[in-house]
């Protein structure tokens, strides 16, 4: 096969795959904006973490000894970011979604529809209604289509709001606290390693013991430099 034919073939295959990919995205996220925000958020964290790790790997100014420390640190930092984002955001979103689907969080229009379906509506002090229970799912009702437009737009709004709250809690609260905790431990370990290395190469000057000399050296150089 000649080069132009190869290129043409490659172009056709790529266009076909891209076409299929677009349809998959349309089917998967067309009616689930909350899920889309969680998934693209995770993807964003993965790509930005790869960029951070890549920046350390390709930086010629960082000596290889420091790279051996910095690369695992960046990877651990990325793992905290990604796991915390996914676990927290997805949990909050899933809970909100469950509240709406099970009928715990509703609108008067949805309640009216449930009443029309013949279901017993929840009342204070009674525990006989299936509405709001774990196993109850509004989307599985036989006449769901009658309320689907109103229900979907309400549920999508709640999902997006919950995803946003979850991402604020994970990105701006949980991750910074965990990351600071981890980074300060790493910093202390790195400083103590540097000290040990320096002290191994020291010789005690005449007139004082090695232990005394180490004590003095330590007390003079304890200031943290950045």
């Amino acid at each position: 096969m000649k080069t132009p034919d190869l290129m043409k073939n490659f172009g056709q295959v790529t266009a076909k795959k891209f076409g299929a990919f677009k349809n998959v995205i349309l089917e998967k996220y067309g009616e689930q904006p909350g899920t889309m925000l969680v998934h693209t958020g995770v993807l964003g964290w993965i790509l930005s973490s790869l960029a951070q790790v890549g920046a350390v790997v390709v930086n010629d100014k960082i000596p290889s000894e420091q790279k051996a420390f910095l690369i695992p640190q960046e990877i651990a930092d990325a793992a905290i970011n990604i796991v915390s984002f996914y676990v927290v955001t997805n949990s909050v979103k899933s809970l909100a979604s469950k509240l709406v689907k099970s009928g715990k969080l509703t609108t008067p229009k949805i309640m009216e529809h449930l009443k029309k379906t013949g279901l017993k509506l929840p009342k204070k002090g009674e525990n006989v209604s299936p509405v709001g229970k774990w196993d109850f799912d509004i989307t599985k009702l036989a006449n769901y289509d009658e309320i689907s437009d109103h229900f979907k737009s309400f549920k999508n709004g709640v999902d997006v709001g919950a995803s946003l709250l979850g991402s604020i809690a994970s990105c701006n609260l949980i991750t910074p606290v965990l990351r600071n905790e981890y980074a300060s431990k790493q910093q202390k370990n790195a400083i103590s390693r540097m000290h040990n290395k320096q002290l191994q190469n020291l010789e005690a000057p005449c007139g004082i013991s090695m232990a005394e000399f180490q004590n003095r050296a330590y007390s003079k150089s304890f200031g943290l430099k950045i």
């Binding site: 909350g34 709640v158 999902d159 997006v160």
Partner: peptide, 11 residues
């Protein structure tokens, strides 16, 4: 507002 937020709030 909730429904509009779901439709308009993109990434």
């Amino acid at each position: 507002r909730i429904a509009k937020f779901g439709k308009k709030c993109s990434s």
